[in-house]
């Protein structure tokens, strides 16, 4: 069967993964609800924050309100795509057998996971461009040196939130994931220290929010863009969440429904 074997080979790994990345990205961008959660809602939140005086965002180094608001909205965008979006889409892919079919295709399970991560990062890049441009138009003055620590925090935050998303998507029923992922998004938005910094939350909640991945990502991005520095504690909080969620997800993830 040597002749047959040479005909029926898989495309190179890089091509397979990039093809799946393109497919996942364009599927997400064609999906109206996903686009709403990924771009439209964060953009509306930013405009709302810029035009009003509540909720209070506090001040960091005498910063303007918009300078506190934009990093928080960027953190919200990461949570929308890496957590809510991935949890729901992966849960339904699991329900409809898509994960199993792709797992036995030449792409394979590891190729699928890499492609999902790359698709999330691609969407996030688009979100950062849209929200960043909108912020600049609304008077945002970022500390440009902060781009480097911000990129690091966004990457680590994405890892933590995708791992949390897979933990939900790989263990619960698709309808349960849909409800829970949206509920968690709303809770984190309101109380998780994403847009309203943990320091501005009621005392008991402030400490909790600082230890949540949402609060850590929000705080880290604010420190980066306002002070131009890398906030170490938020980074460590995100690494801890990422490590625990990855461990649990890798043990509990079920590929079939």
């Amino acid at each position: 069967m040597t002749t047959a074997a040479s005909i029926h080979t898989a495309a190179p790994a890089r091509d397979r993964v990039l093809a799946q990345t393109r497919f996942e990205t364009s599927t997400l961008l064609r999906n109206g609800e996903q686009l709403l959660v990924a771009i439209v809602l964060p953009a509306m939140a930013l405009v709302g924050l810029a035009l009003s005086h509540s909720p209070s965002l506090g001040q960091l180094n005498q910063s303007a309100r918009i300078d506190v608001a934009v990093p928080g909205v960027l953190a919200l965008a990461v949570i929308s795509t890496a957590f809510t979006g991935q949890a729901i889409s992966t849960a339904f892919d699991r329900r409809y057998g898509v994960l199993r079919l792709l797992g036995v295709s030449p792409l394979g399970r590891s190729g699928l996971l890499i492609a999902k991560a790359l698709a999330v990062l691609t969407i996030e890049l688009l979100q950062f461009i849209v929200i960043g441009a909108l912020g600049l138009a609304l008077g945002w003055h970022p500390h440009w040196l902060g781009l480097i620590p911000a990129a690091l925090l966004a990457l680590v935050g994405t890892w933590a939130f995708v791992a949390l998303a897979l933990l939900l998507a790989g263990t619960l029923r698709a309808e349960g994931v849909l409800a829970l992922a949206n509920l968690i998004w709303v809770l984190l938005l309101g109380l998780g220290g994403v847009i309203v910094p943990p320091s501005q939350l009621p005392a008991g909640l402030a400490h909790l929010a600082a230890l949540l991945p949402s609060g850590a990502l929000g705080t880290g991005l604010r420190e980066a863009f306002i002070g131009g520095r890398l906030a170490v504690i938020p980074l460590l909080v995100l690494v801890a969440w990422g490590a625990v969620a990855t461990y649990l997800a890798s043990r509990s993830f079920r590929w079939s429904d």
Binding site: H8, A10, R100, L101, S105, P106, L107, G111
Partner: peptide
């Protein structure tokens, strides 16, 4: 992957 490329699969629930 080359083995998987040589094996076609149709699942009962489509996928």
């Amino acid at each position: 992957p080359d083995h998987r490329a040589a094996v076609g699969v149709m699942l009962q629930d489509g996928g």
